[in-house]
């Protein structure tokens, strides 16, 4: 098996995650889909690391994880406060960004 298949898998997962972001309305699920996309990227980075024979790819994947963790913390905090204020977790209800 060619390890390039990992890249195809990563692309597939990334696309699925993106579609989820576009389709789902529950902010938490949207957030999960974002995490899925990040993970797909990490997979491709790890595969690249193997391809090039050095560890830089893994380092970047590591940083991605850290940033994702920070993002999750802040994002979930936002969702919680949104829920508190509006009693809903739907992204469509926060549609005031228009004229």
């Amino acid at each position: 098996m060619n390890p390039v298949n990992y890249l195809y898998l990563a692309a597939l997962l990334f696309t699925i995650g993106a579609a989820g972001v576009l389709i789902r309305r529950n902010a938490i699920v949207v957030f999960m889909c974002v995490e899925l996309m990040l993970n797909a990227c990490n997979l491709s980075l790890v595969a690249f690391s193997r391809m090039h024979g050095n560890l830089d790819g893994q380092i970047i994947a590591f940083f991605t994880m850290v940033v994702a963790a920070a993002e999750v913390v802040v994002g979930l905090a936002i969702i919680v406060s949104l829920f508190r204020a509006r009693h809903t977790a739907s992204v469509d209800d926060a549609s005031l960004m228009k004229l």
Binding site: V21, I23, R25, V91, D92, A94, S95, M97, K98
Partner: peptide
């Protein structure tokens, strides 16, 4: 109309 306020 494109600016409908929906993040999605």
């Amino acid at each position: 109309k494109l600016q409908n306020g929906y993040a999605r």
